[in-house]
Amino acid sequence: MKPVPFDYVQAQSTEEALACLKDSDRNVRVLAGGQSLVAMLNLRLVRPNLLVDISQIESLSTIRQSKDILEIGAAVTQAELKQWPGLAESVPQLSMALPFVGHFQTRNKGTVCGSLAHADPSSELPLCLAALNGSVVLQSARRSRVLNAAEFQTGMLSTACQPDEMIVAARYPISREGDGFAFREVARRHGDFAIVALAAFVTESKIRLGIGGLASRPSVREWDILSEQELDEALNAFAWQLKGSDDIHATARYRRELVRRLGRQVIEEAKSARTKE
């Protein structure tokens, strides 16, 4: 279980990193925290020619808050975000979800953007991005573009990020007065990838529910405020649309059941979080 040979660059700036990505003849991979990538390298599932390490790029290591968004640079670790003062007020859902992201030790090195780039269908940070309709900033040597979650997340381990591009930042919308959030996850073991993860976001007039773990990417539904019965029906429809599949950890039916049962709970929780403020 040792990685294949590859060349390595420790980029000092975003420009340097992007210059490496221009080389279309080589299979170039961006290394940030490496908590997913290096495991895959060790298993030889990923066989790059060149690894570009962006973890030491100063300009990517910042968290910036503006009126509407929290922008998290590509080298910011999950631990840094978790400890960021005011996270619970600015993006409550992230502060609810982060304790479920891996473990203390992996959060010390794993980055927020790395988790988005890896696009594991069960992981929490991509789910929050989808539920909150956040976006990512992609940059290449020739252009920079901002994609919202729905455009960015294309499938199992797959994103719209092109070979010459990298994520330079993630943007999560700041919570507004009267917004309510809740997060819940069921895994077979503490800190594992979710069997089902649910992220609810409720405002005065709408309900948004994001689900991870059933489809090949996070899925979101948005409803106007519904009656109890309508909500149950909507959740049941959502569960069946996602279908889910059987694997060694759970059945498709179990996954759907969690959508129905916990979907309701997280929405209620998010609602009451609203009224509390």
Binding site: Y8, Q35, V38, N42, A79, Q105, T106, N108, K109
Partner: peptide, 10 residues
């Protein structure tokens, strides 16, 4: 100063 996995670091 931070606890990390040496097997996931080069």
């Amino acid at each position: 100063g931070k606890a990390v996995r040496a097997c996931l670091t080069f």
